[in-house]
Design a protein around this nucleic acid. Structure first.
Lengths: 204, 204
DNA sequence: TCTGTTGAAGAATATTATTCTGTTTTGTTT
DNA sequence: AAACAAAACAGAATAATATTCTTCAACAGA
C-alpha cells in the first residue's frame, strides 16, 4: 500500500498516524480524481475520520495539497543532493542530476504524478511565496555546485540560464509522458541514453 | 487587450461575441487566480453577464476550461504544421519543431501559461478521452513526418520514444521557467542555441 | 407576421468548503 | 495518582460556490 516512506520520514511517530493516513488518502484522491474534483468528503470517507480532524491538521484543502507537495519535493531534492555529493566532475554531476531524477520518478510514480499536477495550484495558493523561495534556493545551490567544477576540460553551452533546461528538460518530458501512459517503456531503461544525449548537447 | 486572434479564429462572428468575451475573461481569471480558485461569479463579474449565459454556452466550469484548452492547443499545433511543412530534412524538421514552439509561446504568453496549468484538470475531467485521442493523433502524425525523412545522413538516437522528449524537453522546460518568472531572458533569444544543442544531442 | 430556435437573465437549489462548539485523548506537572 | 493544559477528534451549523430551472428577449427563416 505504502509506496515508500516519504510520509514516515516527514511525519514520524504514533501521534501523527492519522495525519499520515489523511495525506496518503488525499494523494490517492488527487491523483485519481484530480485536484479540483477531490472533495474533503471523499478524503474523509477514505480514511474514516471527520472533517474536524482534517481541518485541525491542515487548515484547508490547500493545506493538504501543500503538505503533500513539499514532502514530495523535499524527498526528491534530498535524493538529488545525495547523488550530487559523489560527483567529481561536471560530467558526473550532469549524470547524477539526470539519474537521480529518473530513479526517483520510477521509485515514486504516485508522488511524481502528483508533483506535476500540483505545482500550479500550489504556485497560485497561499504557499506561493514559500514555493518561490524554495525554488530560488534550490536553483542557486545547484548553480553554485555546477560552477564549482569549472569547465576546463570542455566548453559548455554559454547562457547559464539554459543549462538547467538542457539537462533536465528531456527527462522531465519523458517522465510526464510515461506517467500519463503515452509511452510504455520505463524511464530507467533509457537512463544511459538520456545522460549521454544531454552530455553531447552541452558541448559547444 | 486581445493578445492575439485565437478566439476570433475559433469562434467567429457577431453572435459569438459574448462567448469570446467569457472565454477571454476566464483565461485571465484562470491565469491570475488559478483554476480552482476561479469562481463562475468572478468570471461573470468581469464580463458583466449572467450565470445563465455562461452555462448556456459552456455547460459547466470544465466546459470553459476545455474550450480554452483546445483552442490554444489547436492554434499551437497549427503553427507547428505550417513550419514543419517547409522542412526538407530531418535537421530542418527538428529546427522547425523547436522554433515554432518557442515562437508560439513568446507570441502567446497568456495562452501558453494557461496550457501548462490546465492540462492536468482537462486530462482528469469529462474531456479526458478527447484529449487522449488528440494527443495520440498528433503524436502519430509527427512521428510519421519525422520518419519520412529517413536518417541516411546521420545516425539518430535509437529508441524512437525518446526522440520527442529530447527535441521538445529543453524548450518546454525553459518556457515554463520563463513564464513563471524564474528566468528573465526571452526564449527567442536562445532560439539558435536550443536548436543546435538538441541537434547535437540527437547524433549518436 | 408568425414561429421555432438560440441567447440571455436571475432566482432557486444542490454541492462543497469551512467554521464552531463540544468532547475525548494525551502528555505533563505536582 | 490527580489535576491540569494542550492537542486530537467528532459532527452539527454555516458560508461559499457550482449548477439547474424557469422565464423572457432577440433573431432567423417560413
Amino acid at each position: 500500500m505504502n509506496q515508500s516512506n516519504i510520509l514516515e520520514n516527514r511525519f514520524p511517530g504514533r501521534r501523527a498516524a492519522l495525519k499520515r493516513e489523511i495525506l496518503e488518502q488525499a494523494l490517492y484522491c488527487f491523483n485519481e480524481l484530480g485536484v479540483e474534483a477531490t472533495t474533503i468528503d471523499a478524503i474523509k470517507a477514505r480514511c474514516d475520520t471527520s472533517v474536524g480532524a482534517i481541518y485541525h491538521h491542515f487548515g484547508n484543502k490547500e493545506g493538504i495539497l501543500s503538505a503533500l507537495f513539499f514532502a514530495a519535493q523535499d524527498d526528491q531534492r534530498h535524493r538529488l543532493e545525495q547523488e550530487l555529493a559523489g560527483a567529481n566532475s561536471l560530467r558526473e554531476a550532469v549524470y547524477s542530476i539526470i539519474w537521480s531524477y529518473l530513479d526517483w520518478v520510477v521509485d515514486n510514480p504516485e508522488w511524481a504524478r502528483f508533483l506535476y499536477q500540483a505545482r500550479s495550484p500550489v504556485a497560485k495558493g497561499p504557499f506561493q511565496e514559500e514555493l518561490t523561495n524554495r525554488n530560488i534556493q534550490n536553483y542557486r545551490k545547484l548553480k553554485e555546485r555546477l560552477i564549482s567544477f569549472g569547465n576546463d576540460d570542455i566548453k559548455i553551452v554559454q547562457p547559464f540560464e539554459m543549462l538547467f533546461s538542457l539537462i533536465i528538460g528531456p527527462s522531465e518530458n519523458y517522465c510526464r509522458a510515461w506517467l500519463s501512459g503515452r509511452v510504455k517503456t520505463s524511464p530507467q531503461e533509457y537512463r544511459k541514453e538520456f545522460a549521454e544525449s544531454v552530455w553531447r548537447s552541452l558541448q559547444s
